[in-house]
């Protein structure tokens, strides 16, 4: 899976925002933190959920299971707005 080309990732101050082009059905804006920023950075190439989790574990030190949960939640939310290409 990867980020749909009708969405772009923009870094502003401390936040990462995911913004749809006029061609996307979704017209809102997703604002997230550094974690979301790292996930969408990985999604700019074709990756699996497992790869994202493995890469995130290299970046962030978190209690067991937290990274898996955060990645699955983030991908789930991105899927809902059509930002993921399978």
């Amino acid at each position: 899976m990867k980020l749909n080309s009708n969405f772009i990732v923009h870094q502003t101050d401390k936040d990462t925002v995911i913004v749809p082009t006029a061609s996307a059905a979704f017209s809102g804006v997703v604002k997230g933190n550094k974690t979301l920023g790292s996930i969408v950075k990985l999604l700019q190439n074709d990756v699996t959920e497992e790869t994202i989790i493995a890469e995130m574990k290299k970046i962030f030190d978190a209690p067991e299971g937290m990274i898996e949960r955060d990645v699955r939640n983030a991908i789930g939310e991105l899927r809902k707005i059509g930002a993921i290409e399978e």
């Binding site: 936040d15 913004v19 006029a22």
Partner: peptide, 18 residues
């Protein structure tokens, strides 16, 4: 910021949107 992004015209070309 979220409101400003909503209120600006967002082009269909990702390069122009960036």
């Amino acid at each position: 910021y979220p409101l400003l992004v909503q209120q600006v015209y967002r082009p269909s070309d990702p390069v122009m949107l960036a």
